[in-house]
Amino acid sequence: MNVKHHLSDEFLIEYAAGSLSEGWSLAVASHLALCPECRQRLHAMEGAAGALLDKADESANEDEAWARFKARAADIKVEEVKLEAPKATKQTVVLPEPLRSYVGGDLADLKWRALGRGAYQILIETKDKNTQVRLLRIPAGKPVPEHTHEGRELTLVLAGSFHDGEELFARGDIEEADGDLLHTPKATEGEDCICLAVTEAPLKFSSWIVRLVQPILKI
């Protein structure tokens, strides 16, 4: 499996800096679990942050701080290093961590809710009020309803694949879209497409009928 569509520097640097909110971070971390290349880039960014830390010297006398540290270190119980043995590799696991813990299991455990036209979704709860996070299941060969959205959107493919224009997105691939883009992703024939979608604001469907039912379906 080779991931072809990667994270932008913009998302990755915010994740590296710890400023990216929980909803976006869930998609970023789940992509990182599937993409060694982006992990390498993250590693380089953390290295850059480490180099900046080296230069952030404010020379101060540390005698007092060190004395305070030693006083509290006396009370510290050193954490046991738990080196977990890798769990037995089961090829059947589709959802990577941290996503799997958020939805409470792998594909077989999921309780999908119908969206109409054969599509299903699961809303994923986070503490992050500025994003909406969901798993989507689009039936093979069917389009995701045409939509534009306010702000950014991240879509991570977990099973099956979809086309957006000329581009093919398969497992591990992540698509970034911004508010101006009207895009029409379409699931590839042969297999339902399951993806994690994070959006900034409720989706604005451009088809009037979908827009009409949007408040009811909470999409």
Partner: peptide, 27 residues
């Protein structure tokens, strides 16, 4: 740096989900 970053995230009671290298789905 990553330890300092995580201490700061905790101090502000935010969450930063992370991947798990021991996860069977991890590539």
């Amino acid at each position: 740096y990553t330890i300092a970053r995580n201490v700061r995230i905790d101090a502000y009671r935010r969450k930063r989900p992370e991947f798990d290298m021991n996860d069977p789905a991890f590539v």
